[in-house]
Structure formats: structure tokens, C-alpha cells
Design a protein around this nucleic acid. Sequence first.
DNA 1: CAAAATTCCTGACTGC
DNA 2: TGCAGTCAGGAATTTT
Length: 300
Amino acid sequence: MPELPEVETLRQDLAKEVVGKIVKSVSVTNGRSVRRHPSAKHFRGLLEGRTIKSVGRLGKYLLLTLDSKDTLVIHLGMSGQLLRVKSAKEPKPKHTHVVIVFTQGGELRYVDPRTFGEMFVSSPLSDAPAANGASLPVGMATGDGAALRRQVPELAHLGFDPIEDMMSWDRFGVLLRRHRAGLKSLLMDQEFVSGIGNLYSDEILFSAGLRYDRTSDGLSATEVRRLYRAMVETLTEAIKHRGSTLVDEQYRDLFGEAGDYQGSHQVYDRENAPCRRCRNPIVRAKVGGRSTFYCEHCQV
DNA sequence: CAAAATTCCTGACTGC
DNA sequence: TGCAGTCAGGAATTTT
């Protein structure tokens, strides 16, 4: 399941591959993947003839800004893939639901077996001139994320982006104290911080040396700092490795290549394997229906 | 057959 | 008592 590092890898690839391209035609073969539109035709109409100006990211969402000021928003859900191919002749994988053809040649394909992902074109709020920063939830008015959030009203509820929106430890501490949630639940809460899912929340907590069930308002100043550092460093490191492609998962970059970070996982999917730090077996627990992996010795 | 995990939704529960 | 916030549980989904 693509999380922030995988989506960021895709963003970087897309920035190189599709910026400046003009959409010649769009075909939608599974309506479930195109949501929030009255019809697939409506969606196509907003896309065809448009030029892609830039590619951004907010949490797990990809944002392709068009020359019309609209934004093509893409969320990969659990099994979504975005593939760039040179020729329409290349065989289409099963579950290819949307194809965007470029006038310059080549096409972008959206493949998603489980159809938990979605795509839609968003229009910025009619005007809503600046100064509405005050209406944004606390902790969000920083970084480029603020501009993107304004550009896509549907995503205004997303929490800060740990890579785009830097903040001080003090500020992070304040945000943590505002909630009284278990650390893992909070890290996965997209309205608190966006982009972290099941895999990276476990890796971040191991790196921080904190248990998943510690309460967010009970951390010492040192622990707050460790958590913040672990969050930024783990995600940054994973991006450098172009994300994680798990044995059973289908994450691939724009060119169909696998990521490289899975080899660096400390706890995720390593039940009973020896902890890389202390050699004690990694434990598996269940949190909110999700498998949670941690080291009882290293995480306190 | 169960497990995997995303977002959204609902209902139960908790602390103030 | 009420309110806001947390979180468990279920749905939609397909492949292993």
C-alpha cells in the first residue's frame, strides 16, 4: 500500500515525465476509479486539451496542476499503480481503469485491482483570497502544503505533511499534547499528520524507541524530539530508497520498477524475526484491526 | 476461508 | 448532561 515515500517517488518521476505534456484524450473503463464527478465524460472534459504544469503531493495524494488552474487528484488506495508507457501498443495490464494519452506521445495508465483508489479533477475555491490561513486547523499554515490545500478544497482536512511542512519540536509537542491518542493511531490519523500508514508508523515508532500504545500527551520533551526526528528521518530515508515493495504487494514506480526500502525494515512484517538492534523476537499485535509490529525490548 | 489495508461512516465510550 | 474526540468495527475489493 503506497504511503508517503512511495507517493513521493511517483511525484518525482511524474515531475520529470509528464510536466509540459498536453492531454490528448482520456479513457475511463472503470467508473469506480473516477469519483466525485457526475459522469466520466465530465471528468474527461476537464482534462482533455489541458497542459500539465506541475506535480505536487499532499500526504498520500498526488496533485497534477493543469493550465486551467484545476488539479487532477490521484489517490492510489491500497493497490493503485500509475504507469507511464511509451506506446499504446504495450499490453495493458489487467485492471487498467483510466488511460491518459498525451499529444507528444506516450500515455499514463492507472491500474488498480482493489479499486480503493480514486481520481478526480478539483477546481480551486471560486476566489477565497488569501488571509484564510486563520481558518486552517492549527499546525497547517506552514510550508508549501498550505498553498496546495487551498488549491484543492477537498483535501483541506489533511494534517501537516511531515516532509513538506517542517516544524519545531516545540510545535510538534503542542500538537501531540492536544490529542490524547495512542501514538500509532495518531500517526495514522490523516487529519493529524498526512501520509503515514500502517507500515511506516511501525518503522517510525521503532526508530523513536516508543511503543505503539503510548499516549501522545504523556511524552517527555526528549521523547517528543525523538519521535519527530524518527518521523522525518524514516520517511526521508525511505524516499531515498524509492519506497517499499513488499513480497505480496504491488507497489511499483512510474516505470514499473520496485522500491528498495523493504530491505531496511526494522519491524514491519518481521514477526518472530530477531530485532536488528537487540536480537529479541519482533512481536506482532493488533491495533484497530491492523497488524502492528514492534520490539518489546527496544520500544518503551 | 482468512488476511492484507485504504478511506469513510457509525456507534460506543471517555474525560472534562 | 452534553460535547468533542478517540477508536473499534464494518463496507467496498481482489489476490494469495
